[in-house]
Design a protein around this nucleic acid. Structure first.
Length: 777
DNA sequence: GAGTTTGAAACT
DNA sequence: CAGTTTCAAACTC
């Protein structure tokens, strides 16, 4: 783990060890950087050659990403040795050197092993992150390849399930942790949390998701303890010696249910005060988790994410902490396998291997996306998340999570989801999901979540639709329409073999999983090569084919610190719809489905999109309006006449202003979802709101994309500048779809909402950058 | 659950 | 690039 660089840094910084700032810095340090490899994990990633270059963002992005990221890393990774040290601890120069050397040796060793072998199944989890990180850094993508299920080394059982869950523990600071509580000055005992305990918890219901859901009413992504007391309580559990007798219920009982959001499997505990000696690395890394690794853990942990955060009290500066999380997801990441395998190799060392359990749990879910560890997260996002091109969009989005999402079950799972903060018990009840402070948010966001992919349908996504098949879905189900199973998409392909964009899973960059009703499905790890080739082929035809359908250019919410002028985030469908009969009021309409308004780029007829009409009459964001003015084509007038109809009933003042993707995505609105009132099955989960979170820290948070079905997020930083609509100088970019469909807006200049427009256009342009299967190193 | 509708994706 | 076909989701019954 310890790279020389790292050591140096640490040495230098040793003085500052205690300071929160230091921790933060550590988290940022490149040392841990994730290799591009993680990115490759998804099958998409494979295709994406460029991503690494493109997405180079520092931790910030990572942070954001982290949210979305799915974790592939086994708990073991979290383990103490390297990871902890890397991130959190500061060693004296000497110590570090020594340590570094040993680690290096270790690393090399592991690396060699990896090379020879392809990864172990995720389940094997215990891995040393450090080694991996190193590897990643060193070996960028070579290792990447389909390590996961498809990989030879991959554990078949896992593969079979295709749903693999990983438990990720991020030791690293800031990046991972989404949020920290303010008040917690306590020592961080939390780090000590034992996964085992958690693991031991038994799900009430057979379905893990349900189980968690039950636990977590709202299903927020994160569990945050605002009050020290809460944290303490939590700690108590965590600290307890592994007692098999302890059950999840017990565990949960300690936690304020209200505190739990989303049912997401993450829990964040902020216990560590800044400056306290208990840095993430110190505590967290080691011990506890490591110990946990057991079959039970794996099995049981599935969705749970434990986070221990270090938090810096001082400030808002925050940052964070470590998180242990387990996220389930199905991903196309192939890398995961590698990592895991490595981990497994190393495992012997690391005890915790929650990943397996996760996977198992996830079984239902599609493959997991790779999760990244701390440092990795930052970079990793791209990498790990990389899975779907879509992810890129997601990354940005992830920044802001809106409360609303939480409310809606499905959205929760989305990458979008952000950490929520619960301040008080009362508040908790309400689940006051307040976006974390911007700064924190950013950080937190990283950690926070992951979303399940399904949703993508998700969203990831991790994007729209369902985010996770697992819990999110269920939540969604609960929350949303009864009928919808949704959260996750499951395809039902019969003739396409799930190798065409007709297949939602394939389009989302995820493998089909059990829930899918597809026939002759080739979108499975077993047919990885085929999938990749096909994907490549499709991308050659249309570079944007796998890009998120919905692009969120700017932040829905004015980011703090950002240019006030920015318009609320608005999202647009990358190509625009072509609806003729549905009036863009049904999910047939991709714009509508994605929760975004129609824009000039749409060729729809009689647009009545509740999220925003093409003409802009609807509660569309400014952008649309502008576009509207600009656009002359298509019967704008016609639409205009139609405007009032829907608006009156549907549009809320808010919506009008708030059409942020996020909002849009939410079914909350009494919007006209389906006639039944269902929320779109796969809503885009874009997250505009995120801007709040992410942006603050980053300063720019534009998430270009929100993701439609699968969420994938890409760190802003990583995103090519071009892609960044907000900041990008390039305001006018035309995007062309392969099809020749209109993508770009007519006007280059965006005026007040440059970001959005710019983003959108930019994205398209940049598209080439999307990683393609072919390019993959 | 079967059948219809719809519009994207794919094909020509 | 336009037109047509194929496909699977969305929707209806």
């Amino acid at each position: 783990m310890d790279t020389p660089e790292r050591n140096q840094i640490s040495a230098t910084l040793s003085k500052f060890e205690d300071s929160p700032v230091f921790n933060y810095i550590n988290s940022l340090s490149p040392i841990k950087p994730v290799k591009s490899v993680p990115i490759s994990q998804t099958f998409n990633s494979l295709s994406f050659s460029s991503p690494p270059s493109v997405f180079t963002s520092p931790h910030v992005s990572c942070l954001k990403e982290s949210r979305f990221l799915r974790r592939h890393i086994p708990l073991g990774t979290w383990k103490p040795k390297v990871s902890s040290e890397d991130v959190n601890k500061v060693h004296t120069s000497e110590e570090e050197e020594t340590l570094a050397d040993s680690k290096r040796a270790h690393h090399n060793k592991t690396e060699s092993q990896e090379n020879t072998e392809k990864r172990v199944s995720i389940g094997d989890a215990s891995i040393e992150l450090s080694s991996e990180h190193i590897k990643f850094s060193d070996e960028p993508q070579q290792t990447l390849k389909y390590d996961t299920c498809g990989s030879p080394g991959y554990d078949p059982s896992l593969c079979d399930d295709e749903d693999s869950t990983l438990l990720e523990i991020a030791g690293e600071a800031a990046a991972d942790v989404g949020y920290v509580q303010e008040g917690c000055k306590t020592d961080s005992v939390e780090s000590e949390v034992h996964l085992q305990e958690i693991c031991q918890m038994e799900p009430k219901s057979e379905d893990p998701d349900c189980y968690w859901d039950s636990l977590v009413p709202d299903g927020s992504d994160m569990l945050i303890f605002n009050s020290p007391g809460e944290a303490e309580a939590f700690k108590g559990l965590m600290h307890k010696p592994l007692d098999p007798s302890i059950r999840l219920s017990e565990f949960m009982s300690v936690l304020p249910l209200s505190a739990v959001h989303n049912g997401r499997k993450m829990f964040i505990v902020d216990s560590v005060a800044s400056g306290s000696e208990h840095e993430i690395g110190d505590h967290c890394s080691e011990p506890t988790i490591a110990a946990t690794d057991t079959d039970q853990t794996r099995d049981n942990l599935a969705d749970v994410v434990l986070v221990t955060s270090n938090y810096n009290e001082n400030a808002n500066d925050q940052l964070v902490s470590v998180t242990h999380r387990a996220i389930r997801r199905r991903c196309l990441d192939f890398e995961m396998a590698n990592v895991q395998k490595k981990n497994s190799d190393d495992n012997s060392k690391a005890s915790s291997s929650t990943s397996e359990s996760d996977e198992r749990n996830v079984a239902n879910e599609k493959q997991l996306l790779p999760a990244k560890l701390n440092g990795n997260f930052q970079r990793g996002i791209l990498q790990g998340i990389g899975l779907h091109l879509n992810a890129l969009a997601a990354l940005k989005e992830y920044k802001g999570i809106q409360i609303e999402n939480l409310s809606s079950g499905r959205h929760l799972s989305l990458p979008n989801s952000t950490s929520l903060q619960i301040t008080t018990s009362q508040e908790q009840q309400h689940l006051s999901l307040v976006p974390v402070s911007s700064e924190r948010d950013l950080d937190s966001s990283d950690n926070v979540l992951q979303s399940t992919e399904d949703c993508s349908q998700p969203s990831v996504y991790m994007a729209g639709e369902d985010f996770n098949k697992n819990s999110p879905r269920k939540k969604k189900r609960k929350l949303e329409t009864p009928g919808e199973t949704e959260g996750c998409k499951r395809c039902n392909c019969k003739k396409s073999k799930c190798l065409k964009l007709y297949c939602e899973c394939f389009a989302a960059g995820v493998y089909c999983i059990e829930p899918c009703s597809c026939q002759d499905c080739f979108n499975k790890p077993v047919h990885e090569d085929t999938v990749l080739q096909t994907r490549k082929q499709i991308e050659s035809r249309n570079p944007l084919a796998f890009a998120p359908k919905v692009i969120r250019s700017s932040d829905s919410v004015p980011e703090i610190g950002d240019d006030p002028n920015k318009t609320p985030a608005s999202a647009r469908h990358k190509r625009g719809c072509n609806c003729k009969k549905s009036s863009c009021l049904k999910k047939y309409c991709e714009c509508y489905q994605g929760g975004v308004g129609c824009s000039i780029g749409c060729r729809c007829e009689g647009c009545k999109n509740a999220f925003g009409r093409k003409d802009g009459s609807a509660p569309v964001s400014i952008e649309t309006e502008q576009e509207e003015t600009e656009t002359t084509d298509k019967g704008m007038a016609e639409k205009a006449s139609q405007k009032t109809e829907i608006q009156n009933t549907e549009d809320h003042p808010d919506s009008a202003t708030m059409l942020t993707p996020l909002r849009l995505s939410r079914p909350l609105l009494p919007l006209p979802f389906s006639s039944k009132g269902k929320a779109p099955r796969s809503f885009v989960t874009t997250i505009s709101g995120s801007a709040l979170f992410a942006s603050q820290k980053l300063g720019k948070s534009n998430s270009l994309w929100s993701q439609s079905k699968h969420f994938q997020t890409v760190p802003d930083d990583e995103m090519p500048d071009i892609l960044l609509g907000d900041t990008s100088p390039i305001t006018c970019i035309k995007t062309s779809s392969p099809n020749g469909k209109r993508i770009s807006s007519p006007s280059c200049d965006l005026g007040s909402s440059p970001s959005r427009r710019g983003g959108r256009k930019l994205i398209l342009q940049s598209i080439p950058s999307f990683p393609s299967l072919t390019s993959h190193p």
